[in-house]
């Protein structure tokens, strides 16, 4: 109990004093995760919409696979990305291992199925609702996807946010591919793991509270942002 209080105090102290290391790793956390989420959304959202609208062979199988990939264990993803990016691996020539880019790649792989799957569900429901109207209005396939993505943007934002939530708190994969290098690839989660390892529970917990605060703040910000553009009564 005492340690939790200490952790809260530590979090407060670091924030109030604008601790330089804290700011640095927090920014890096955001940078890596937001980049990963943007890329994952760019892939996952249209993919989910496409799966919802199109009928093709192996569609069910594809969706089942997508749902299964949602449960990809991050550690395994980390390990595979590590082996891919290692100098002795197939993409070794790029020298990406232990860089923020490697962390972004791992997170994109972890998050994309999640974003695509949630987007697919949301768009599928909306498509069921809009189907007759859009057919009646003689829309083209492109116009349909556009209408569904635009009108489903709130649900899609939720999908991206879910991706963000998964990515920002992820430690297994980015620890492996990033290496937790001070001033290079250290982010909030890996710093927490490190400080826990040193027995510095107060500092670890403090970082943990900052992480939680960050996730909540971003959710609220995006929620507020999407609310202002909507009808106040909706």
């Amino acid at each position: 109990m005492n340690e939790i209080v200490q952790g809260l105090l530590e979090a407060g102290r670091m924030i109030v004093t604008l601790d330089r290391d804290l700011i640095e790793i927090t920014l890096r956390s955001l940078q890596v995760t937001l980049t990963a989420v943007v890329i994952a959304s760019a892939i996952g959202l249209p993919m989910g919409a496409w799966l919802a609208i199109n009928r093709f062979r192996f569609r069910r199988e594809t969706i089942a696979l997508l749902n299964a990939l949602m449960g990809l264990p991050p550690v395994v993803v980390g390990l595979i990305v590590y082996l891919m990016l290692s100098r002795s691996g197939p993409f070794g020539v790029f020298g990406l291992l232990f860089t923020p880019t490697a962390m972004v790649i791992a997170q994109v792989i972890i998050v994309t199925p999640l974003v695509a799957s949630i987007a697919h569900q949301a768009i599928r429901d909306l498509w069921a609702e809009y189907h007759d109207l859009l057919i009646s209005l003689n829309t083209t396939r492109g116009q349909r996807i556009l209408a569904l993505i635009w009108d489903g943007r709130r649900a899609l934002l939720t999908a991206s946010l879910a991706g963000f939530g998964r990515a920002i708190g992820e430690v297994g994969a980015i620890m492996i591919v990033g290496g937790n290098i001070d001033h290079a690839t250290r982010v909030l989660t890996t710093a927490i793991a490190l400080e826990t390892g040193k027995g510095n529970f107060a500092l670890a917990l403090g970082l943990g509270f900052v992480l939680i605060g960050l996730a909540i703040a971003l959710n609220i910000a995006i929620h507020a942002l999407s609310r202002t553009e909507r009808d106040s009564q909706w």
Partner: peptide, 14 residues
Amino acid sequence: QAYVFQTPIMMRRS
């Protein structure tokens, strides 16, 4: 031609 459904389909728009 146009069609009006028994239960109107409302888009999520103004």
